[in-house]
């Protein structure tokens, strides 16, 4: 193989699906072949059966919807506040000097460790779930957006000034469009992290959602259901990732590699 040599689109899809098939096959051999006790790991077939019964008999679709709502709600809240702050920090160095040390500190506070505190403050309702996601994503978003906005090429800014741009329009007409594709990429990435926070929040104190179903299944030793829940999370992540990538390509054709 030659380093960095690209593969055709068709080969890429074949390889990608190939690993999934291999993975499921290895799992099937391990479980159906009796190498792993049923109690610890359900077989793919059991998993599908359990999943089907979850969807049809236990209203699991509702749990999925609730979880998606929480992730999207908390994430939009975080993004709506992080965008203006991140942009201001990236563009104006005094604003950055003021917030950056605190935000850098806050970003290392583990969102999951806040869960007990948040339960105390906000109960186990939706507010608490949204807050967990907010804490988990907001500070990360702010810092990464600030870096993206501030990372503009100096000579582009110079060019804009010599074309008559004011300070304000350098921000709106150079810094923002310049950082837009990277910001979209940051949103995609942090949304992925938000998924882990929501599940943790649901594992600890919740009466609905995918994470809640997983804790319930654990009490019943139903590994088929647990695996089905995990796979659903993976699938949703994959789909949202795909949608984001597709949207970015269409919004920013000029940035495509």
């Amino acid at each position: 193989m030659k380093p960095l040599q690209p593969v055709t689109a068709q080969a890429r899809v074949t390889y990608g699906i190939g690993f999934f098939v291999l993975f499921v096959a290895a799992w099937a051999v391990a479980t159906l072949g009796g190498f792993v006790p049923k109690l610890f790991l359900a077989s793919p077939i059991t998993m599908v059966e359990e999943g089907w019964s979850l969807m049809t008999k236990h209203g699991f679709a509702f749990d999925i919807a609730i979880t998606i709502w929480r992730v999207v709600g908390g994430f939009i809240l975080a993004a709506a506040l992080a965008l203006p702050l991140g942009i201001l920090m990236g563009a104006y160095k005094p604003v950055e000097a003021f917030f950056e040390p605190f935000v850098s500190f806050a970003r290392y506070l583990p969102a999951s460790a806040f869960i007990p505190l948040l339960i105390l403050w906000a109960g186990i309702g939706e507010t608490q779930k949204l807050l967990v996601i907010f804490i988990g994503s907001f500070f990360q978003l702010v810092l990464m957006i600030a870096v993206a906005v501030g990372g503009v090429r100096r000579d582009l800014v110079d060019a804009a000034y010599t074309l008559g741009s004011s300070d304000g329009s350098v921000v709106t007409r150079v810094l923002l469009p310049n950082a837009a594709p990277e910001i979209a990429e940051i949103l995609r990435m942090v949304l992925g992290w938000a998924w882990t926070y929501v599940i943790v929040a649901e594992l600890i104190g919740s009466s609905s959602g995918i994470g809640h179903m997983i804790t319930d299944s654990q009490a019943l030793l139903n590994t088929g259901q647990i695996i089905f829940g995990i796979i659903i999370i993976g699938l949703i992540g994959l789909i949202s990732d795909f949608l984001f990538k597709w949207a970015n390509q269409h919004l920013f054709p000029w940035a495509a590699k």
Binding site: D155, D158, A159, A160, L163, P177, N178, F252
Partner: peptide, 14 residues
């Protein structure tokens, strides 16, 4: 005062 730079300074998004 219009300026042309040695580096390519077109705005890539336009």
């Amino acid at each position: 005062r219009g300026m042309v730079f040695q580096s390519y300074t077109l705005f890539p998004w336009l």
